[in-house]
Write a protein that binds this DNA or RNA. Sequence first.
DNA 1: GCCAACGTTGGC
DNA 2: GCCAACGTTGGC
Length: 149
Amino acid sequence: MKSEPSVFGIDDLAECPNETTHWDGVRNYQARNMLRDQMKVGDLAFFYHSNCKPPAIVGIMEIVREGYPDHTAHDPDCPYYDPKSTAENPRWYMVDVKLVKKFKRPVSLEEMKRHPQLEGLPLLRRGNRLSVMPLEAKHWHFILTLSET
DNA sequence: GCCAACGTTGGC
DNA sequence: GCCAACGTTGGC
């Protein structure tokens, strides 16, 4: 799950009550479908810092509430406002996430690109713009190992 | 349903 | 700041 640290980074999550928050603002249908349909309580996710230097995976979160309507779409004062989404017919969804741990060190995009073991990782696909994306267990474990070295 | 124009994302 | 890669919009 991606976020720009200048907007909301892993340290912001650490400062949230109970280190938990709702992951709002996703406005892409593919990502929406994953938030709404696939992510289950207890699932784990990497926290990725995008659009910063260096872009990197910085920690782990746990899904603590399954997909429910993203109310920020209904607030005209919110940058994520979408007039086409209503309370009766919500278009956008979010989940609640809780910080599991911050990595001992960030695992940068550049570093991940260097490892052939991570071939096929959706994050490394050229032109990828999904803010929520799945990954395979083998990639998960490999990245975790990198973070511990 | 096609596709050109435009907007956004995000690495570099 | 540049630009590739997508997604969205809207005319037809």
